[in-house]
């Protein structure tokens, strides 16, 4: 990981001509029709689009949850998909190379804050003490270190989302997929989360894709991918209020 961090080209994500077809024959539906996307390390981009536009399908393809029909995906310098998976252990790929932040935090209710974050590195074989140390460092960076021993049910919505972000970052993945991370939050907290994501992207050289239709945060992105009918269009954003 540290070696990757020193080489920016080893991080980020590139997608070329990605398609996804559901079903066969006359009933087939093309959810993605040749999506192209590049997100550099340290960059946060928005992926916006109406319901049914293919946002979730794209997120699931990027997250190696469903298999695309064709196209190419490159994570850092690794081709992970080229008209077929090039990685045999998708679970390990998700664990080590992709971070997830969900609409709801979905923290594990029976683990305290530290262990919710430390669980991922532990699953990857990192010793418990080191995993907890790593988790604590992130919780400190996200200013929730004072809730380290609290259970998820004892946290506010904003605190829970920050812990979820820490969990997404803890394995230092090259890419983070954030699915409507500000949906349950008010404007102030939503902007705070986006600010944190930008800080973390820079600090850890992580490419972050934020799926959203939250009007209040769209102006914060410097680059936005609009998706409609399975096709993406890139445009420059305002990049306001993220520093």
């Amino acid at each position: 990981m540290d070696k990757n961090r020193s080489d920016p080209s080893a991080r980020g994500i590139r997608i070329e001509g990605l398609t996804k077809r559901y079903g066969h024959g006359d009933t087939a539906v093309d959810a993605l029709k040749g999506v192209n996307m590049v997100v550099a390390p340290g960059e946060v981009v928005g992926l916006v689009g109406p319901s049914g536009s293919g946002k979730s399908t794209l997120l699931k393809c990027l997250g190696a949850i469903i298999e695309p029909t064709s196209g190419r995906m490159v994570l850092g310098q690794d081709v992970i998909y080229d008209n077929g998976w090039k990685i045999s252990d998708l679970r390990a790929l998700r664990r080590d190379k992709i971070g997830f932040v969900f609409q709801a935090p979905y923290l594990i209710p029976f683990l305290d804050v530290t262990d919710n974050v430390a669980l991922l590195p532990m699953l990857a074989g990192v010793p418990n003490a080191e995993a907890r140390q790593r988790a604590m460092a992130l919780l400190t960076a996200l200013d929730v270190q004072h809730r380290a021993k609290a259970m998820p049910s004892q946290l506010s919505g904003g605190e829970q989302q920050r812990v979820a972000i820490a969990r997404g970052l803890v394995n230092r993945p090259p890419v983070i997929l954030a699915d409507e991370p500000t949906a349950p939050l008010d404007s102030e907290r939503a902007l705070a989360v986006i600010r944190i994501l930008n800080q973390m992207a820079k600090q850890f050289d992580t490419a972050i894709i934020v799926v959203t239709h939250d009007e209040k945060i769209i102006p914060t992105f410097k680059r936005i991918y609009h998706i409609r009918d399975g096709v993406t269009h890139e445009e420059a954003g305002e990049g306001r209020g993220t520093n």
Binding site: R91, D96, Y106, L120
Partner: peptide, 16 residues
């Protein structure tokens, strides 16, 4: 179920 889905998504093995 939701927690299990999250665990699977973040890379927890079926064995775990």
């Amino acid at each position: 179920i939701r927690e299990i889905a999250v665990l699977k998504l973040i890379g927890t093995t079926n064995r775990t």
